[in-house]
Structure formats: structure tokens, C-alpha cells
């Protein structure tokens, strides 16, 4: 597969694979003995895909077998997730679970999603989470959320761009509107790139975005970071105040993790959790995530499962409020 693989890794990967193929079924004790499939429920090129490829490269090295990224996009990340929910729980099929596939989309596609985001998965580990950030065009005259609120209450209202309807960024716009008591004019785009371009060009004054897609533009000064939706100020951007500091009780992270089908043997889940946490804690990986504004996850499997459950409970009512259900 990969030229980046060292010869040792390749040998380690291929020999057990030969042995295992003779046996009827890979034993949990001998796991991993064949390539692992990591399903990304989004198209190649997005943040989920990116995180998955980083993790796949890391796990491949640590587990000694190939970890193959497979993109199965569609229906708000539910197609790929459903595929994994139904796959054999043998530790060879994993999904890059995320805020869309495992918290928001189940509420958006509530009549069509045929998996339970909590009970149909053995949740393994939180990989990384990024806060939402609100940025503005420097010429729009919006430096604080108070400025934004004043514009929203003013005659024309306030336009806010997002990467798409039903995204966590969109739901942030809805929550902010509820807190302000005035509806914000939501302008959805197809992905963060085009939305950011419209903000830089001044067609839309403001945007609710995940930090990774904004980082370069904030550093360059082509947009101004107005508020960050994390509990504390972000270490990479200490000068950007949080929503709470500015009087709005909002915090929202987009997150990415690893999950397997429910029933995956506990030792496999534990091993994957250990390797993933060790990988994301490596200084160079931490640095890579930090450049993008992400915080590496450090949760046990149980911790991550609880986390997913809380997120599901948090987002469902907001999806209703946004009228973003698809049925």
C-alpha cells in the first residue's frame, strides 16, 4: 500500500495476515492480523477525512497492520456510519465518528437513520475536538459580539455564513439567535471554503466556522476572530474572548473520534483506545493539531461513549428548533 511503510512494519503486517487467513476466524487474542478498514463517512478532503488519515497512519505504525481509509459519503454522514454499525464486530471495521454522524444527523434524518448513535457502536476514543469560532470581515465593523448583536437588532439584520444547513456551525447560529431574541439571517454554503471566500470578499459580514478552516485566515488578518465557543480561551488564540466572557452562554466543539460496531470485544476496544490516545499525545501530533486549533482527546472508551450520549441529547432539540429535520 504505502511506500512510507517501513519494511519491518510490512513484514509484521503480512505474516500474521497469512496465518490468519488459514484460520476460520481471527481470534481477539491474535488481533490485529489483517488490514483494518477505517470508514470515513464524508468525501475525501474534508476535516474528518484529514483527521482519519492522520490517525490511520499512526495506528498503522503502532498496530503493525495496514489501516485503510475508505470514504463512504452521503446523507449527512449517516450512510458510512450505518455500514459500520452493521459490520462484523471483529475489530477490523472502524468508523471516524463525529459530531455530524453521531450527534446531529441522527436528529436531522430521524426517520431514516437505521442506527442508534449510542447503542449500536462500541465507542473507542475521542481523537480531537475543535471549538467553533465566529469570524467577521475586517471592514464589517464587527469586533465584539455586542457589535454583532447591535447589527442583528438593527434594520437590515445580520447575515451569518456557515458551511451548510444542519451543520453544528448552523445550529450555533440558531442558538445565538435564541439568546439574542432576534433571528439571524443564516446564509448556508457548500462547505467552509466557499463560505470563507464570501466573508473575505465582504459579501457576507460574518461566519460561524470550525476553527481549523479559519486558522490561516485569522492569522493572516483577512478575517477578525470575534468570539470562540470554548469554555476557556484557546491556547493558540489567547487574545480571542469566549462567548461566555461576552455574556452569551454558548460553548460548542466539533469533534472526531473512533468507533466500532457494538459487540466488538472489550480487549480490542481497550487496545485501540490505548494506541489512539498514545498517538494523539505525541508531541508532533499535538503540535499538528494545535496548529489547526484542535485539542487532542483523552477519554476512556466509557468516557467517550458518555460524551457521545451527552452530545446526542444536546443537539436533538436544537435541530428541532432550527427546523432542519429532513422528513
Amino acid at each position: 500500500m504505502s511506500w512510507a511503510l517501513s519494511r519491518r512494519t510490512m513484514l509484521a503486517g503480512s505474516i500474521p495476515a497469512c496465518i490468519a487467513s488459514r484460520g476460520a476466524r481471527a481470534q481477539a487474542a491474535a488481533w490485529p492480523s489483517q488490514p483494518i478498514r477505517l470508514v470515513v463517512p464524508f468525501a475525501p478532503g474534508g476535516t474528518t477525512d484529514l483527521v482519519a488519515r492522520l490517525v490511520a497512519a499512526g495506528l498503522q505504525e503502532r498496530l503493525g497492520v495496514s489501516v485503510i481509509v475508505e470514504n463512504r459519503a452521503g446523507a449527512g454522514a449517516t450512510l458510512g456510519s450505518e455500514l459500520v454499525a452493521r459490520a462484523a464486530p471483529d475489530g477490523y471495521t472502524l468508523v471516524m465518528s463525529n459530531i455530524a454522524s453521531h450527534a446531529i444527523s441522527p436528529a436531522v434524518y430521524r426517520n431514516r437513520v437505521r442506527y442508534n448513535a449510542v447503542s449500536d457502536f462500541a465507542h473507542i476514543a475521542l481523537v480531537v475536538s475543535n471549538p467553533t469560532v465566529w469570524v467577521a470581515n475586517p471592514r464589517a465593523g464587527i469586533r465584539t459580539l455586542q457589535d454583532a448583536a447591535a447589527k442583528a437588532r438593527g434594520p437590515g439584520g445580520l447575515d451569518v455564513a456557515t458551511s451548510g444547513a444542519g451543520s453544528s456551525n448552523h445550529l450555533m447560529v440558531v442558538r445565538m439567535g435564541q439568546l439574542l431574541g432576534v433571528e439571524l439571517n443564516h446564509i448556508p454554503f457548500r462547505g467552509a471554503g466557499p463560505a470563507m471566500q464570501a466573508v473575505i470578499a465582504g459579501q457576507v459580514p460574518m461566519m460561524s466556522d470550525s476553527l481549523p478552516s479559519s486558522v490561516a485566515h485569522i492569522r493572516q488578518g483577512s478575517v477578525v476572530a470575534v468570539a470562540i465557543a470554548s469554555a476557556q480561551r484557546h491556547p493558540a488564540f489567547p487574545e480571542v474572548p469566549t462567548f461566555r466572557e461576552q455574556g452569551f452562554d454558548l460553548a460548542s466543539d466539533s469533534w472526531f473520534g473512533l468507533s466500532a460496531p457494538a459487540g466488538t470485544p472489550a480487549p480490542i476496544v481497550a487496545r485501540l483506545n490505548r494506541e489512539t490516545r498514545a498517538f494523539v499525545a505525541l508531541p508532533e501530533v499535538r503540535a499538528r493539531f494545535a496548529e489547526l486549533g484542535g485539542t487532542p482527546g483523552d477519554l476512556t472508551p466509557e468516557g467517550y461513549a458518555d460524551f457521545v450520549q451527552r452530545e446526542v441529547a444536546l443537539w436533538a432539540p436544537l435541530v428541532q428548533a432550527a427546523g432542519a429535520t429532513a422528513d
Binding site: G74, A75, G76, V108, G164, A165, P188, G323, T325
Partner: peptide
């Protein structure tokens, strides 16, 4: 899927058509 509202259009309940 409609970009603005997230509504499904003419998909006849087939998830593959949602994109």
C-alpha cells in the same frame, strides 16, 4: 439534499439519492 434547508427533494426515500 437542499443546501439551504437540508430538506430531501425527490429522493423517494432512497438514502443514496440524498447527495
Amino acid at each position: 439534499t437542499d443546501v439551504q434547508t437540508g430538506q430531501q427533494r425527490f429522493t423517494f426515500g432512497i438514502p443514496e439519492l440524498s447527495d
